[in-house]
């Protein structure tokens, strides 16, 4: 068996999982299973939030070690499920090593078009408005706030803006749009609008995974994810603050919120 290809497949699977926001133990588990099919005496996978190391070793033979640095992480549940499926098929012998590697390489990046994505971005604030004390008029207004957010996100992604900056700008835009709507229609509850509008940006995934990683004693990844969640939260807070101050400066005479 080609050890180099086994380790390449394992590292590729691990890289996709880590970039898609899988929990650390899942990445290690999947890699370990693939590495074990090489039937070497030692097969180890070490995954931290920012990188992967895998090694295979037989007595008397040069060990094979591959390391990958993972920089950008997002959330893509589709890819997590697919990699899970492929690796399980491979480990149970239903798929050849070459086919597995090719399948991992050809994995689709996204399954929804930008339009669907933007509609979803509008739906999230609309849905959350009633939960944060809004009535039907807040739901309608949230649609506009969500639209502003979708626009900012699409433009930001086109320009390849970084995570922190993009989050801050989106939060600032959402807040400003909400306050603007509140000025135009004073009957609206601006608090509800802002909070609902910020919900798509909230670091839910980082928080959840931070807890689950820590629970599995992956302390380095858990701590890193907690820090990641904190950074996102700080970006949103910063953006919201900038948005509020901006609207205050535009119309100093207007009542603050």
């Amino acid at each position: 068996m080609d050890h180099k290809l086994v380790i390449d497949t394992a590292v590729l699977a691990g890289e996709i999982l880590l970039k898609s926001g899988a929990e650390t133990y899942r990445v290690e588990d999947t890699m370990k299973h693939i590495l074990n099919t090489g039937n070497t005496e030692t097969a180890e996978a070490l995954v931290m939030l920012t990188g992967i190391v895998a090694t295979m070793e037989d007595p008397g033979v040069q060990p094979v070690t591959v390391m990958r640095r993972v920089n950008d992480r997002g959330t893509n549940i589709y890819r997590i499920i697919e990699v899970n499926d492929i690796s399980r098929k491979y480990c149970s012998g239903k798929m050849s090593l070459e086919a597995t590697y090719a399948a991992l390489k050809d994995l689709k990046r996204r399954q929804y078009s930008t339009a669907v994505y933007n509609i979803a971005t509008v739906l999230v604030p609309m849905g959350f408005a009633p939960l944060w004390g809004g009535g039907l008029k807040e739901v309608a207004a949230s649609a506009f706030v969500g639209g502003a957010l979708a626009l900012l996100m699409t433009v930001g992604k086109r320009l390849r803006a970084g995570g922190f900056f993009l989050n801050a700008v989106c939060a600032a835009g959402t807040t400003a749009a909400s306050i603007l709507l509140g000025r135009l229609y004073p009957a609206l509850n601006v608090d509800t609008l802002i909070i609902s509008g910020l919900m798509p940006l909230v670091p839910g995934m980082a928080v959840t995974n931070a807890v689950r990683d820590t629970l599995r004693h992956d302390f380095i990844s858990g701590g890193a994810r907690a820090l990641e969640a904190f950074m996102t939260a700080a970006a949103i807070a910063l953006g919201a603050g900038v948005g509020m101050l901006l609207m205050q400066m535009v119309d100093p005479g207007g009542a603050f919120l």
Partner: peptide, 28 residues
């Protein structure tokens, strides 16, 4: 009434958020 609106709202919101996370269609 508020409760029903809230539950319907959370359903819509989380469905939308699931799409943002690229959840496969059958799980959305």
């Amino acid at each position: 009434m508020t409760l029903i609106l809230g539950i319907a709202g959370s359903f819509i919101a989380i469905t939308g958020f699931a799409v943002l996370l690229e959840t496969p269609r059958k799980y959305v």
